[in-house]
Design a protein around this nucleic acid. Structure first.
Lengths: 149, 149
DNA sequence: TATTGTTATACTCTATAACTATA
DNA sequence: TATAGTTATAGAGTATAACAATA
């Protein structure tokens, strides 16, 4: 978007992002993890341990829903509950080694599929996408991993 | 990715896309539509009427799940069932005006939030993102709107 | 008394299996 | 007999409301 962004620019941006979102959703490896479960694990991987209530608001689900999700992740060995020595009410959640392994596997599967698609683009398109990645990272930084709307 | 893409390039691509995916998911307007419902409506908007079974495989859900989803969309006036004169077994699904209106509303809401974020980037980052959109569109074209994995 | 998390209950969405109707 | 879709039933995931424990 140029310094003076037009409605047409904004619409184009949203539509392209919508299609990209759909593509990435369809590139999702398996149904072994729900979208929220995978996203929660990624947040823990990227940002370290967090309180249960912070995770709930980060993922846009209620506290009871996160309680259940964390219980599921714990039961399957992907994450673990810890206590906060400073406040007995707090539950701190951390990713477990099995969780990191699973994320790595899923990432590799998706990387392969994406690479196959990218290989079909011409050099200019590939270069344009790779050139935009740092900007995307900064866009995501602005929003924050625990960001709300 | 350069013509010769490295593992590091692929990992960077996937990680950036993962964060972008998370951002777009959190930018999602409301819970008025499930992710699959919204995606199905968008597919119908972009690509016109489709058979129920095609929609099911496009969205990666079973035929019974799509039967129920279409019933919900029909009950809420967002889509409608049509018959195929050439084959009495077939159900053709089309988006209704209310469905188009809803997609437009959601798109506007998301466009506003995205524009606010984009406004915080510097000119070079904004330009890099806008320059990559056509390449993203072609990437999505390669996969196809009804594409499988 | 306020905050953090859990339990109880109900609803939405999805899957698998069995069925109906048309080809 | 095969295909397109539906109905029946069960399970996962979520929300709201009520509760327990700690601050």
């Amino acid at each position: 978007m140029a310094p003076t962004s037009t409605d047409a620019d904004q619409l184009q941006l949203v539509k392209s992002f919508e299609r990209l979102f759909a593509l990435l959703r369809r590139l999702n490896p398996q149904q072994d993890l729900s979208l929220t479960a995978a996203s929660t694990l990624r947040t823990l991987e990227r940002c370290g341990p967090h309180r249960l209530s912070d995770l709930a608001s980060a993922e846009g689900v209620t506290q009871p829903a996160m309680t259940q999700l964390v219980s599921r992740l714990e039961r399957t060995g992907l994450a673990e509950r810890q206590t906060d020595p400073a406040d007995g009410r707090v539950v701190v959640v951390d990713i477990a080694d099995a969780g990191r392994d699973l994320l790595r596997q899923r990432r590799e599967a998706r990387a392969g599929k994406l690479a196959a698609l990218m290989a079909e683009l011409d050099d200019a398109d590939r270069a344009a996408i790779m050139a935009a990645l740092p900007a995307f990272d900064r866009l995501a930084d602005l929003f924050g991993d625990l960001g709300q709307i």
